[in-house]
């Protein structure tokens, strides 16, 4: 099996990425998770469009519209949809139409202010994606640049960067994030900075280790011999070879960022005035005691599946990309 694989690689000369993709494609669970992630991404984009549209037209979006008469409506699929209020005879067609329109109205029920839980869940997905993407955009570049510099230049630069990240790693994580968010002020900016500025440490450490290994390889020596600059060697030659670390880190970083946002919003430090999953859980917590479970269920289920999909996908991608694991088998 192994010799055959090596042989085939030689013949076709597949790149690391193509090879990893072909491995990933045969992993049914990973493909399913990828599908889930794509689905969530679509939902988040839809949420963004809804949000922008309503902001552009300056109207209250449906997920913020309160209606005290429709307070605590259970999910419509639990109600008998074909029930008609008045006792008079109606045709089965009309019955079906009312049934379907009832089903469509509040598929996951409403919350304490009569807002539609389904729409709020979609907006929660949008917020979660925003947090995941923006914090990645903060944390990944910091981790990659510092890690590459520490590994490549060594000596003083290395000492300095190692000092920075040991310091950051020493501070208890959640408290550090909370403190940053508190100092920056409430709202999404605090969440972005709190998560982004604390979670680059792991990636930085990994990249540094990989770059140290690659620094002594012949291809880097060859690049030196050609007289290329440090910048070019780091980012054009070494970085592509260690980039799989970034990809794997990203897939594990993303769900962690989402979960942390839920924490922060739950504690009242994160998002304000917008329906994040954390806010939904926080609102639904007290209502749960009165038996109103659907808002809680919607937010937690949405959260569970995206985190699960990312975790499984991350594992699969690591298995597909990491050459060490491959030779071990």
């Amino acid at each position: 099996m192994t010799t055959h694989a090596i042989h085939r690689d030689k013949q076709t000369g597949k790149s690391l990425w193509a090879d990893a993709w072909s491995r990933l494609r045969h992993n049914r669970l990973a493909m399913f998770c990828l599908l889930v992630v794509i689905l969530y991404t679509g939902v988040a984009m839809y949420g963004e469009i809804v949000y922008r549209w309503h902001q552009w037209h300056d109207v209250t979006p449906p997920y913020q519209r309160t209606n005290m008469e429709l307070q605590y409506l259970p999910p419509s699929f639990l109600l008998s949809p074909f029930a008609v209020d008045d006792g008079e005879e109606v045709s089965s067609l009309k019955q079906a139409v009312t049934g379907i329109s009832n089903l469509m109205r509040h598929p996951l029920g409403t919350d304490g202010l009569g807002r539609d839980v389904f729409q709020r869940m979609i907006q929660g997905t949008r917020i979660a994606y925003m947090v995941g993407i923006v914090t990645s955009l903060i944390a990944l570049p910091i981790g990659v640049v510092l890690g590459c510099m520490a590994g490549y230049f060594g000596r003083r630069v290395d000492d300095f960067i190692v000092w920075i990240y040991t310091t950051f790693a020493s501070i208890p994580g959640l408290l550090f994030i909370l403190a940053i968010a508190m100092v920056v002020g409430q709202g999404l900016l605090g969440v972005y900075l709190g998560i982004g500025l604390t979670m680059w440490v792991g990636l930085c450490r990994l990249i540094r280790g990989e770059v140290i290994k690659h620094k002594e390889r012949p291809y880097v020596t060859a690049a030196h011999a050609l007289g290329l600059g440090h910048f070019r060697i780091i980012f054009r030659h070494i970085l592509p070879n260690v980039f799989h670390v970034v990809i794997v880190s990203f897939t594990l970083f993303f769900p962690a960022a989402i979960s942390t946002e839920v924490f922060l919003s739950f504690l009242g430090i994160g998002v304000e005035g917008e329906p994040s999953w954390g806010i939904m859980i926080s609102n639904a917590r007290l209502r749960l005691w009165h038996g109103i479970w659907w808002e809680m269920a919607a937010a937690t289920t949405a959260l569970f599946f995206i985190v699960l999909a990312f975790n499984l996908l991350g594992d699969a991608i690591r298995d597909a990309l990491d050459p060490r694991l491959r030779t071990g088998k």
């Binding site: 769900p255 924490f263 954390g278 859980i281 975790n311």
Partner: peptide, 15 residues
């Protein structure tokens, strides 16, 4: 284990 990992801490506590 992965499923346990993916359930948010908050959910464990609240539920």
């Amino acid at each position: 284990a992965v499923a346990l990992m993916s359930i948010n801490y908050l959910v464990w506590i609240v539920v």
